[in-house]
């Protein structure tokens, strides 16, 4: 019996989504970096599994910190 845990609604997890290819290209161009310079997230991460993201996808994280709202990005490895 494997109960699915609702990972995405966990109170410590901000809203996350998989980015489209064009968006990723735009992002990398804006910062002038390569994909592998982004912070990483493992393919086996529960959130990645819940989002059904694949290796090489970039996940956009809508972070809400005490200092303000901003986007954070993680590449699936």
């Amino acid at each position: 019996m494997k109960e699915e845990i609702d990972v995405l609604n966990y109170f410590l997890n901000p809203k996350m989504e998989v980015m489209k290819k064009q968006e990723v290209e735009k992002l990398l161009k804006e910062y002038g970096i390569e994909k592998n310079q982004l912070p990483k997230v493992l393919e086996s991460d529960p959130v990645v599994k819940a989002l059904k993201a694949k290796k090489g996808d970039v996940i956009k994280i809508h972070r809400k910190d005490p200092t303000g709202e901003y986007f954070y990005y993680r590449v699936v490895v």
Binding site: I5, Y10, N13, M16, V41, L42, D45, P46, V47
Partner: peptide, 10 residues
């Protein structure tokens, strides 16, 4: 392990 790296960071 259960909720992922982003939750762990927080």
């Amino acid at each position: 392990a259960i909720y992922g790296i982003e939750a762990a960071r927080n």
